[in-house]
Nucleic acid binder design. Sequence first.
DNA 1: TGCCAGGCCCTCTTTAGGGCCTT
Length: 196
Amino acid sequence: MSAGVSRTDEETPVFFDLETTGLNTRSSDIVQLSAISGVKTFNVYILPRCPIDSGASRVTGLTTRRDTLLLHGTPVPTTPLTEALYSFISFLKTFNRPVLVGHNCKRFDCPILLRILREIHLLEEFQQVVSAYLDTLQLSREMFILEKHSQSFLVQHFLHKDYGAHNATEDVRALQELYRVWSPSRELVNKHMFIL
DNA sequence: TGCCAGGCCCTCTTTAGGGCCTT
């Protein structure tokens, strides 16, 4: 084999994103969970157990009224929390111990996701189906000298697309596309992968 | 009424402060 490691030897990246009730990683609930890898996609909406912060509603368009989750005022079907995370685990099982990739996931998405998995006693099962995590914010800061590294800025800069989605399904599609364009080296990916 | 977090990084730093990044 040549000096570089064949790309096919790498763990499959699964790009994921959460929309949550707020920015506090110790108390926020998940409202939407999306993931994508190649053409395989996953998406669930979850009725949160706590109110959605006004700031979060402003950026995601998600609100609650009684026991209904609304997206820009229109009801969306929700999945009970435990069932939603079970089905996410089932989705991840269709890959061979993938790497979960998210933007700022080390400081935001992972702490929330893993705290809630622990609360509903699914953390151990989850960790068995995921091999590691990769944060594209850290990757971007190492790969590129830019004034900003927010996902919306990066999408405009590299993909030349207007982007203000803040919908998890669109966020993960954009992140997967960014990653393809960046094509980070195995060495860089390894450097920024982490285990929780 | 309006605000609410927190860890990392940078620099006009280190006995600190402010911006970034996520919702």
